[in-house]
């Protein structure tokens, strides 16, 4: 049975490794891949007046840039490997948004790369991988 795998992708080497791993799994099991790119965003941040005015334009530019620079090339790569692929782009808290994409798309698995965060920063802010492992509605694979 064909399942959907959500791959959290931010353009980093770790996320590329996660995608590579997802491609081999998908090939072996006949699954499809959703490349998910989340732009970190909080509706509770503080902006200046000029930032407010330009926000809508900036958002359009950011989405366009992510599409052409990050998602398009990766999509071609997955397609050429013979795996069915779609993309998703959202703003929000990274772990929560990945969960929401998985839920909305009816995905069976989430793959992400490990960022290798450790020490004080990870303790204070928590890592995406750790949060995801705790809140995800589907099994999560963390690729080192």
């Amino acid at each position: 049975m064909s399942r959907k795998i959500v791959v959290g992708f931010d353009g980093s080497d770790a996320s590329r490794r996660a995608l590579d791993f997802a491609i081999t799994r998908a090939k072996a099991q006949g699954d499809s891949i959703i490349i998910a790119h989340v732009l970190e965003w909080s509706p509770y941040s503080f902006l200046t007046q000029t930032e407010l005015e330009e926000r809508h334009r900036r958002r359009k530019e950011e989405l366009q840039r992510a599409e052409t620079a990050i998602l398009d090339p990766e999509m071609k790569r997955v397609q050429s490997a013979g795996v069915p692929v779609t993309t998703a782009m959202r703003y929000g808290h990274i772990a929560e948004t990945l969960c929401r994409i998985a839920k909305d798309e009816g995905a069976a698995l989430i793959f992400i790369g490990r960022m290798g965060e450790s020490g004080i920063a990870a303790r204070l802010f928590g890592s995406v991988a750790a949060t995801l492992a705790q809140v995800s509605p589907v099994p999560v694979t963390i690729v080192p």
Partner: peptide
């Protein structure tokens, strides 16, 4: 707020910016 509109100016942001003025 519709989650699909995330990334646009939120009500919170408009309020706090106006308040800082």
């Amino acid at each position: 707020s519709d989650p699909n509109d995330a990334g646009e100016v939120s009500h919170f942001q408009a309020l706090t910016t106006a308040l800082s003025g």
